[in-house]
Computed example of a mutant assay.
Amino acid sequence: MSVLEVGDNFPGNVSFGYIPLTPESEEITSCGIPTKYDASETFKNKKVVLVAVPGAFTPTCQANHLPGFIQNIEALKAKGVEQVVVIASNDPFVMSAWGKANYTKDDFIIFASDSELAFSKAIGWTMGDRTARYAIAIDHGKVVYAAKETERGVDVSGADAVLAKL
């Protein structure tokens, strides 16, 4: 696998670890049980935005990157987006807590783990031992937008940039 570009098919055999939000696990101190999120299968049948961040609860990710997607849920839905998947190298427990700390209450935005950077390494978008900061929009299996930040900050991978390309 290599860098994904517009027009490419989203690759097969891509999965992430995540903890589904359930009534039993909605408290931030509830752990839940990690499960497999089969991105390749799910992305074949949906319009999805995959957002990668270097780390949950880190300053730029928390203050500048994630808020744009949360604040633009209705605009994303208006463009036909059915789900936003936020990934980082953190484990599923940390990602779940990050989602809860940001008051996500359904599965429109899910927080998942790119364990051992399997996906990010495969496309060459890592930042040392962390996922790089990037966004990929997939429409029923086809990549319609893919951009990785080359500088510090949030420019090409933020909600505004993604919305402009949908």
Rank of each mutant, 00 (worst) to 15 (best):
M1Y: 04
S2E: 06
L4D: 00
G7S: 14
G7M: 10
G7L: 13
F10C: 11
P11M: 02
P11H: 12
P11G: 02
G12M: 05
G12N: 15
G17I: 06
T22D: 01
T22E: 12
P23Q: 04
E24T: 00
S25H: 10
S25C: 09
E27L: 03
I28S: 12
S30F: 04
C31Y: 08
C31G: 06
G32R: 01
G32H: 10
G32E: 05
I33M: 04
I33L: 02
P34H: 04
K36D: 10
K36S: 11
Y37E: 04
T42N: 13
T42V: 14
F43E: 07
N45S: 12
K46D: 11
K47N: 09
V48S: 07
V51N: 02
P54A: 14
A56K: 02
F57I: 10
P59M: 06
T60Q: 10
A63K: 09
A63E: 14
N64T: 14
P67E: 06
F69Y: 15
F69W: 11
I70S: 10
Q71C: 12
I73G: 14
I73H: 08
E74V: 05
A75P: 06
L76E: 09
A78M: 01
A78S: 10
G80P: 07
V81P: 07
V86G: 00
S89Y: 00
S89G: 03
N90A: 00
D91C: 08
P92T: 02
P92E: 07
M95K: 08
K100N: 05
A101D: 11
Y103K: 15
T104R: 10
K105V: 04
D106S: 08
I109C: 05
I110Y: 01
F111T: 00
F111H: 03
A112I: 02
S113H: 06
S115T: 15
E116N: 15
E116P: 02
A118M: 11
F119G: 04
S120I: 05
K121V: 08
K121D: 06
I123L: 07
G124I: 06
G124V: 13
W125I: 14
W125Q: 15
W125M: 15
D129C: 11
A132Q: 11
R133M: 06
R133F: 09
I136L: 13
I138C: 14
G141N: 15
G141D: 12
G141T: 10
K142C: 15
V143I: 15
V143R: 15
Y145I: 07
A147W: 12
A147H: 13
A147I: 12
K148A: 13
K148P: 07
K148L: 09
K148W: 01
T150V: 10
T150H: 09
E151I: 04
E151L: 09
R152Q: 11
R152W: 05
R152G: 02
G153P: 03
V154G: 03
D155A: 11
D160W: 02
D160A: 07
D160Y: 02
D160I: 01
A161C: 03
L163T: 00
L166M: 01
L166W: 03
